[in-house]
Structure formats: structure tokens, C-alpha cells
Design a protein around this nucleic acid. Structure first.
Lengths: 142, 142
DNA sequence: ATGGCACACGTTATAGCATAACGCAATTGA
DNA sequence: TCAATTGCGTTATGCTATAACGTGTGCCAT
């Protein structure tokens, strides 16, 4: 019961961090993750940051810039776009509730295209795009 | 010559911080600003952060979430939209060159609308939206 | 098999970003 | 005048992130 969601390609530390994020309700800071994993042998921030770097690189985890925190990717394999290598998508956007900390991950082609067009027009070469909406989710706005 | 751009409503500290940002080529961290203002009597981070809070509230300064840094607003009064109170605009987006640190501030109605529509559809009430594209500017991409 | 390489890991120390909590001074307006 | 508000200065602290070092392991070309 409650078996960890594990990607076999992950190292032990990566799997532990990924699992902690998957179990969490909302985003967690690196130090919060560290505290959750002390029982599993984690002692230093770098252990967490190194795992997070890789997980982010794999697209399994996203960093929320406006929170300095991390969430597990909400996408699942079969997703709409860019899924060439089984995992992969365009720019992901986040709606972050400042009351209950719920994070909704979504994707909007049109927004993507507009930003790409703008960049093309300016000769700007995008590497990573951040879109984060902070506010109140439906429940909390009531 | 080179007279400070001053908004008369600002306090001394706010004006100093705003001026420092206006003179700067690119974004500055709070601590960088602090260092630049030591000659003007600044001694502690809080002096900078308090000024930045107000300037951000006034819409004169933007925070770049992905850099933990600040830039003077590139808009000038007469701008396109939302300019009800002389200053005011929808969501502002930034393109940040990771090579030369140049920041281009822009605005796209269409993107705004799409995000607003998404939020309306979800019952989400946006408070603040962050859009930041990191990459290489035209010159640096060459 | 062995030497070299790439990569993950562990540890200590340090750097960089941000705010809490206190008290004082000036301004405003009832 | 008194109270409320706002800005200011200071000290201390907390949170976020990386530098620099060394170890161990697996791989594979020689």
C-alpha cells in the first residue's frame, strides 16, 4: 500500500526527493524536503539540491520561482504536446493559491505561441520561460 | 547634467533606491543596491527592502522572480493600457538575457487575456502574475 | 586487469537573499 | 493634544543556494 512512485532510472537520492514531492500536498522548499528526509539519511542541503537539479532536468519536477520552492510535475506521460520522448512539453504555467498553497499546473498553446512570436520578432532566443499566477483558488476566493 | 529622475512623492530613501535602479544598466539585487548606497548613509538591508516594497507597490519598480533582483519600470506615463491613474498596466513580461543581463520589459494583451480567461474558467482570482523569459538577446545569440 | 573517465555522493564551510522585532521621530488629522 | 500612521535605523536571525574538497562506483577501451 502507498507504494512509492518510482522511476527506475533515478538514483536513490533522486527517488527519495521525487517521492517526497509526490506525497506532498503542495510545493516544498529544498530545506523542507531536507527535513522530511533526515530519517532517510539526508544531512545536507546539497543532497537535496543535487537531486532537484537532476529531477528538474528530467522534467519530473518544476521550480516555482516566485516561491523558491519545488513541485512534482503534474503531467502524465500521454500528455498533449511535445511528448516526443515520452515526457516533454512546452512552457508550463502555474496558478498558485496564496491561501491554501494549492498549485495548479497548466499549459496554454496560445500563450506559448504569442511569447515565441514575440521572441522571434526581437531575435531573442528563449531558454526557459516562467509563468506563475499568484492569487486565490476557487475555494479560497469564496 | 545627469539629474536624478525623481518622483516628488518619494521619500529620501525611496528616491535613492529608485535613482540607483534607473542609473543601472540591468537588474540589481537588494544587496548590490545597498552597496551602491553606502555612501549615502545606507547601512542595512532593510533600508533597501523597505524602499523596494514601496516602489514596487507604486509600480515604479519590478521584481524579477527568477533572479531575486529588481529593475526600474521601463514604462513611461503615456503607455498603452490601464493608464487610468497616470501609471498602471496589465501584467508585464520580461525577457532576460543570461549573457549580458539586459532586460527587455514588454506587454502582450493577448497573453494577458488568455491567462485571464484561464483563471476565469477555473474560478481562480489572480493577484499577481509573473512572466519571465530567460535566454539570449539578439546580440548575444549571434 | 587496469587505468581513465564520468557521475553520484557526503561533508564542511560560506555566500546570498530576506525578514523579525525593537524603539525613535515626524506627520496627520480628529 | 492625543492617537494613529508611516518612515527610519539597528541588531539579530532565518531561509535559500553554492563552492570546494574528497570518496566510491560503474563502465569500457586499451
Amino acid at each position: 500500500m502507498n507504494a512509492p512512485i518510482v522511476n527506475p532510472a533515478l538514483t536513490k537520492n533522486q527517488a527519495l526527493v521525487f517521492d517526497a514531492l509526490n506525497r506532498a500536498e503542495g510545493p516544498m522548499s529544498a530545506y523542507t524536503i531536507l527535513d522530511k528526509l533526515r530519517d532517510h539519511g539526508f544531512r545536507a542541503p546539497l543532497q537535496v539540491y543535487r537531486a532537484l537539479d537532476k529531477l528538474t532536468e528530467f522534467g519530473l519536477v518544476h521550480r516555482l520561482e516566485s516561491l523558491n520552492a519545488f513541485v512534482a510535475c503534474a503531467h502524465r506521460d500521454h500528455e498533449c504536446c511535445g511528448g516526443a520522448h515520452g515526457h516533454g512539453h512546452g512552457t508550463v504555467a502555474f496558478a498558485i493559491c496564496e491561501s491554501c498553497n494549492q498549485v495548479i499546473e497548466f499549459h496554454d498553446h496560445e500563450v506559448d505561441h504569442r511569447l515565441e512570436d514575440w521572441a522571434r520578432g526581437k531575435g531573442f532566443k528563449p531558454a526557459k520561460t516562467t509563468i506563475e499566477i499568484r492569487g486565490l483558488c476557487e475555494k479560497c476566493a469564496a
